[in-house]
Design a protein around this nucleic acid. Sequence first.
DNA 1: ATTATCTATAGATCTATAGATAATGC
DNA 2: ATTATCTATAGATCTATAGATAATGC
Lengths: 194, 194
Amino acid sequence: MGHSQADKAETHERIVEVAARRFREVGLDGISVADIMKEAGLTVGAFYKHFASRDDLVVEAMAAACDDMAHSALTAQPNLKKSIQTYLSEKHRDDIDGGCPIAALVNDTARSSDNTRAVYAQRFEESLALLEGQMPEGTTGNLRAKAMLIYSAYIGALGLSRAVPDSKLSRQILNNVSAELIALFPTTKSEKSA
Amino acid sequence: MGHSQADKAETHERIVEVAARRFREVGLDGISVADIMKEAGLTVGAFYKHFASRDDLVVEAMAAACDDMAHSALTAQPNLKKSIQTYLSEKHRDDIDGGCPIAALVNDTARSSDNTRAVYAQRFEESLALLEGQMPEGTTGNLRAKAMLIYSAYIGALGLSRAVPDSKLSRQILNNVSAELIALFPTTKSEKSA
DNA sequence: ATTATCTATAGATCTATAGATAATGC
DNA sequence: ATTATCTATAGATCTATAGATAATGC
């Protein structure tokens, strides 16, 4: 039983990380506090020294999940084409618990607390700005609106690809939406090597 | 206590209709059998004369919800522009329990039973075909792929508009994605009057 | 002395079933 | 006789709290 203050901070973070993964996989209501604690190597009694309520964990886990994601599919790609191909890949589809929470939890968030929805919206707008920054040079019109279209297509296509049980249809959704988006927003030559 | 066989059929349908609404609103796991029965004017004991398990109700309710929807936003519109405007409207956003279950339950479905997912996928493909049939004359390329892009954008934008707590941002998502889709797939003159 | 953790449990739920009741339908 | 409904409840959960234990930190 180690319980220094340093241990507590580590423990807190470990609980949040477990929750950030599990919530994406099974939904914000799909796992109990006791099971989260067990997966973090603890028992349920310690939970309320770290969080005032289960919902406080949901809020923190939502933020953590969004921060996870911010450094992969949307941020770390050199151009829009790569972003589209990465986001709408079978790898991302099969990595629910490590993938984009904006997609995995969009329905859950609509039914959740104001605090959770506020975190979700804030992180969504940050990701949207990143996507807007990836729009090809020379794209005309409302760039933020176009980024919203792309992000909406991301969320819908990824969600559908996970919902349908037929793997052929699932792949078709990812590939078709990916191809259509790439055709609509062609990356310029200078950006390809960027 | 009326319980003729005709009554039973009506009762069965009433339970399914209540579930089809509530599931869209609170998720497939968000309401108990007892509360569904209460809302249908019954008590929990009668439930298992109508369904072998809770999951059987989920399957039937999913089908019923999709049938509801099939005759409104996607089917009953004369052209694609009207379909886009209707689907991505504040009215649809605020009518979760009567709106499109393909959007409202996409995350829930990914976590649900094979039977539920099969019904979802079947109805999705039917709606997709309707949308494909609404593509403007002279649209070139892979029509099914383009319909998948539109439907994905529908699901993502509607989901986002319900998840974010800021009503201004919510409206912006609907209006921007709607405008971008209409610009991408302009309806021809002959179709406008169709 | 304080506190991070543990075990144990109160009180509220949830699915599913058992058994009683009252209506249908042969 | 059958059965659609009811009330009641078994058994399994879930959130949150109480009280004991063992380590930290003044």
